[in-house]
């Protein structure tokens, strides 16, 4: 058949390229940005600065993993930053009162999953738009965070807890960076090789066709929110461990950084389109850009202009290149 003939003519790379145009574009932009910063700043390409970037992006990265999952179904999770805040606060307070690090971490993760589950149930069972549900949840969680802590940070967390994020493989390269990187690979594998992954894309692409193929679409719309809540709680644990204290402002406005990174990575707001590779690129791009502005001495007041414009330009570029094809 004609299929076989053309298969030979088109290499694997061409097929990959056709399906990953935004990843390739943004990957290219990341490389260019990287090279430019290497040239104009003597401190950019130092191991110290590189680990600095990793440290800066690590929390956004964890949240972005959950966010990608949710956005692939056509949803959105605005509560990730606040969930990070409330779960880390609850964990820290438990740690101080019970002295049990293990229990505190378990409760932290469980709480994240439960909040995600509430989000997911409201979206999947009651058809409330995800934007509204998670916007409400964002406010509730942040408020609960302040109420619980009375507005004060919880300090002096146990050394055993601090050791989780404190452990280093090499100078400045912490163990938990590696954990996050492995998490990226794991989520990528799940998305491309399991039913959960395929259904996630399928629901974002055509929920009715998914249902008619015998898939429990309500369940599989719910799961991404649980994963997102869990990721936010993991972010909370890592943040508390890294700084040895938990402030009620932890995670504030992280949902916006996360969304920006995920969207830059090629995730469609309407669902069904996006990859973990893209999200990784998006997170790194935003991290490198922010870091580049810092080390080249650009005023912090200008940084929003830069990152915001990049976000809009990235999507504008994608739309313009897409339009030509029609």
């Amino acid at each position: 058949m004609s299929g076989k003939k053309n298969e030979a003519a088109r290499s694997k790379f061409q097929v990959f390229a056709a399906g990953h145009r935004s990843e390739i574009t943004m990957g290219g932009a990341l490389v260019i940005l990287f090279v430019i910063l290497c040239i104009i700043s003597p401190v950019f390409l130092t191991s110290r600065n590189m680990t600095n970037i990793l440290s800066q992006v690590s929390f956004t990265a964890v949240l972005a993993l959950g966010q990608t999952f949710v956005m692939l179904t056509g949803g959105i999770d605005l509560s990730v930053g606040s969930v990070l805040g409330i779960t880390s606060m609850v964990g820290a307070m438990l740690m101080r009162s019970t002295e049990s690090v293990f229990l505190a971490i378990a409760v932290t993760l469980l709480l994240g999953a439960v909040i995600g589950c509430v989000n997911g149930l409201l979206v999947s069972r009651f058809d409330i738009p995800a934007f509204v549900v998670t916007l409400g949840m964002m406010q509730v969680c942040r408020s609960a965070d302040y109420l619980l802590s009375g507005g004060h940070a919880v300090n002096k967390l146990p050394d055993s807890f601090r050791a989780i994020a404190g452990a280093e493989i090499a100078a400045g390269f912490r163990v938990y960076y590696l954990v996050i990187i492995l998490l990226f690979f794991a989520v990528h594998w799940v998305l491309s090789n399991t039913k959960l992954g395929r259904y996630t894309y399928a629901i974002g692409s055509n929920v009715e066709a998914t249902r008619l193929a015998g898939v429990n679409t309500k369940l599989y719309t719910l799961l991404p929110y649980i994963i997102s809540g869990l990721m936010a709680a993991i972010g909370g644990v890592l943040m508390g461990s890294r700084f040895g204290a938990v402030d009620p402002n932890y995670g504030n406005s992280y949902e916006m950084n996360t969304l920006a990174a995920v969207v830059i990575g090629g995730c469609a707001m309407t669902g069904g389109k996006g990859t973990i590779l893209g999200t990784a690129i998006g997170v790194l791009f935003m991290g490198v850009l922010t870091n580049g502005l810092d080390i080249t001495g650009v005023s912090p007041y200008w940084q929003g202009v830069a990152t915001g414009s990049v976000l809009i330009l990235a999507l504008l570029f994608e739309r313009l290149t897409n339009r030509k094809k029609v």
Binding site: R198, A209, G272
Partner: peptide
């Protein structure tokens, strides 16, 4: 288009969808 296909999915993924799902 509304009830049968995943337009952005590959032809292969579309064909395999129901069998794999079940």
């Amino acid at each position: 288009k509304e009830e049968g296909l995943f337009l952005d999915f590959s032809i292969c993924q579309n064909m395999a969808f129901a069998k794999t799902a079940n």
